[in-house]
């Protein structure tokens, strides 16, 4: 039991087992059976740790999450509170990031805006991931659905997305506002349109992987003992396509945050009194001459968050690929 916890004593052990059973696929399975209960995710983390950029990205992303979700508990100024004497001031002790043209504290607004931006990013990513995985798995697993679903994916890829997003938001904004309140309505609308227009890459990657996995022996074995398709997908296929899904999840967050900011920047996202990072940037551009630093904060927040998420995705891709693991 001692050598299980100490990886240094262990490296030649799998080699011996591999030498004992020379037949094709068997040694791999035996190796896994005889190998100590090292969690697969622990291996992934070990590899992930060697990627400096990814580690930095993860660090910054956690910092950003803490800043926007725990920050308001420490920095308790209400983002809507108007301190009219402080309007258009630069960074000071009372307002570390300055105050806007109405005297609202920029740091509190950055926190509130970050909550919305990150929440939009995460939920839109989840929606896109769900749709993409569903379509990818269905198309890969059921031959009959493959043609139509992939044509649908191609069609969505050919849509002019940014114009369509703008049009949809402009047209359906008011009803959703009436139905779910000014903030909730816009949130639902933006998450929905971003999610529904960014699932295509995930679907394609997942379909390709499912097609490959479907031909493997363990699937045949599971089929031969009468596993139903639904169970087959959930128990055998999905766990094996987790890595591309996770990588596209990180890219999805980055994409959703950028799209939301772009929409807010074009004045078609969230209203001004309900800030997001994109909206703060948009509002600050009117005060470029007087207070150029107001542009920097939200811009930096968006850029660094997206950069960190992209780096996490890079590191994850390397870490989840068993061929480069251990290099």
């Amino acid at each position: 039991m001692t050598d299980l916890q100490d990886p240094a004593n262990r490296p030649n052990q799998p080699l011996q087992t591999a030498g004992a059973t020379p037949a094709g696929a068997v040694p791999v399975m035996e190796m896994e059976a005889s190998a100590p209960p090292r969690n697969q995710w622990w291996d992934v983390w070990e590899q992930f740790r060697t990627h400096k950029g990814a580690l930095f990205g993860l660090g910054f992303f956690i910092f950003a999450l803490l800043f926007v979700f725990v920050g308001p508990l420490i920095w308790t100024i209400d983002p809507q509170y108007i301190d009219i004497r402080a309007r258009n001031t630069g960074p000071s002790l009372a307002h570390p990031m300055g105050a806007d043209q109405l005297g609202r504290d920029t740091m509190a607004r950055m926190m509130a805006g970050g909550q919305t931006s990150i929440a939009v990013g995460l939920t839109a990513m989840l929606l896109a991931l769900f749709v993409g995985t569903l379509i990818g798995v269905l198309a890969g697993y059921f031959k009959k659905l493959d043609g139509p679903l992939m044509r649908l994916t191609d069609l969505f890829l050919a849509l002019p997305l940014l114009p369509l997003l703008l049009v949809i938001i402009m047209l359906f904004r008011d009803q959703l506002r009436a139905a779910f309140g000014p903030e909730g309505g816009i949130f639902i609308l933006i998450v929905f349109v971003i999610g529904i227009t960014s699932w295509m890459q995930t679907a394609r990657v997942v379909r390709g992987d499912v097609l490959a996995i479907k031909e493997r022996e363990f699937v045949l074995a599971a089929k031969s003992i009468g596993t139903r398709p639904s169970r087959m997908i959930l128990r055998h296929i999905l766990p094996n396509v987790m890595s591309p899904i996770m990588v596209s999840a990180t890219l999805g967050i980055a994409n959703a945050i950028i799209t939301e900011s772009a929409l807010s920047f074009l004045g078609l996202g969230f209203p001004s009194d309900f800030p997001t990072w994109g909206r703060l940037l948009f509002d600050a551009t009117d005060w470029l001459q007087q207070n150029p630093e107001r542009v920097i904060w939200p811009g930096l927040a968006i850029s660094l968050t997206v950069l960190s998420v992209n780096y996490i995705g890079d590191g994850l891709r390397d870490a989840l690929d068993p061929r480069i693991r251990g290099r």
């Binding site: 940037l281 001459q289 920097i296 811009g299 950069l307 780096y311």
Partner: peptide, 26 residues
């Protein structure tokens, strides 16, 4: 690689505004 990662991550509406701040305003 780092620069292209940054260029890829920073949205154009921020670089644009940043360029205006630096080269046009300052």
């Amino acid at each position: 690689t780092f620069v292209s990662m940054v260029g890829f991550s920073v949205p154009t509406f921020f670089t644009g505004v940043l360029f205006i701040v630096i080269f046009a305003v300052q």
